[in-house]
């Protein structure tokens, strides 16, 4: 921005525009600005425009959202599922990151690679794998029945539990890496110091290790939560009738009903909801931590 402002008073410049350093710097960021515009500014503003003009200015699509309970209810369900799956991914991912931080380099690299590879397995494959594991005749129920622990199969699938399992599996890598990288930046001597000063392992964790890893938790949780908001494959495949996601309704509006203005309005509302979460995050943890900066 500074560079852009500097080139404005051309007439007062000594020498031609081309030879001003600020201008040269500006030229260097042009490709990035262009990409930013094409990939973010243009699509998002065209969605916003589509939701507000058809072709005259109208708020009817937003009003329709407000007066049709379905959409806010599904948005609420979407938020619930997103929060729960984020928490669940945290509960599973945090100990993994914690152990990896303390593992020997060979072990650590093996598991980091394994986690990275899991990114490459198709979402559908991972979801169907869970179906095979969790269904009534699936691995878990078969083993439990065989062992005589249960008489009739547990309902592990096509309900919230199934969604949580599937989404947690997908989100854990996304949550492990930010936490792990923040933990790598924490001096392990701090834990020694705490113990030396009289803290038990438990106290050391809660008073030192955990608070210091909060930026990683925040970054990972925000990332996963925002991804979860836009998710619908896993809830569709592993969920029951009540696990409906707003992005599925948006898709129906786009693809089946060609109601693009309303779909745009729904998208804008989802975007706004996401921004609210982002703002809350920023208020308490600071956005710069997302990119690895330290809040001072």
């Amino acid at each position: 921005m500074e560079a852009a402002e500097n080139i404005m008073p051309v007439e007062s410049a000594s020498g031609s525009l081309w030879h001003r350093p600020a201008f040269k710097q500006f030229i260097l960021v042009v490709p990035a600005l262009l990409a930013l515009f094409l990939l973010f500014v243009y699509p998002i503003s065209s969605i916003l425009i589509k939701s507000l003009f058809s072709p005259e200015f109208t708020l009817k699509h937003y009003l329709y959202f407000l007066k049709t309970p379905l959409y806010s209810r599904v948005l609420w369900i979407t938020f619930q599922i997103s929060v729960l799956s984020t928490l669940s991914a945290l509960v599973v991912g945090y100990p993994i990151a914690y152990v990896l931080r303390r593992a020997r380099p060979g072990v650590r690299n093996f598991f980091l690679l394994a986690i990275t590879l899991s990114f490459m397995i198709s979402l559908l494959v991972r979801n169907y794998s869970w179906i095979i594991v969790l269904q009534r005749s699936g691995v878990v129920n078969s083993v439990l029945t065989y062992l005589g622990l249960i008489d009739s199969p547990f309902k592990l699938l096509h309900n919230k539990l199934g969604v949580m399992v599937g989404m947690t599996h997908i989100f854990v890598p996304y949550i492990v890496f930010p936490i792990y990288s923040v933990m790598m930046g924490i001096d392990l001597n701090l834990e020694k110091a705490a113990q030396n000063l009289g803290a038990s392992r438990w106290q050391t964790f809660w008073r030192i290790s955990f608070p210091l890893s909060l930026p990683g938790i925040g970054a990972g949780a925000l990332l996963v939560f925002i991804m979860a908001l836009g998710f619908f494959i896993t809830p569709a495949l592993l969920g029951g009738r009540k696990e409906q996601m707003i992005s599925n309704l948006i898709q129906i509006q786009v693809v089946d009903l060609l109601n693009w203005p309303f779909a745009s309005a729904l998208s804008v509302i989802l975007l706004l909801a996401t921004l609210v979460v982002f703002a809350i995050y920023n208020r308490y943890l600071g956005v710069e931590r997302l990119w690895g900066g330290v809040k001072t």
Binding site: N196, A199, P211, L212
Partner: peptide, 27 residues
């Protein structure tokens, strides 16, 4: 270590970055 009552000063000080000085000392 926490039951020995032996104090230690670390090479890089190991002050807790998220705690104020008084909380560090009070720890």
């Amino acid at each position: 270590p926490n039951d020995r009552g032996i104090g230690m000063v670390f090479q890089n000080y190991a002050l807790f970055p998220h705690l104020a000085v008084s909380d560090n000392i009070a720890f």
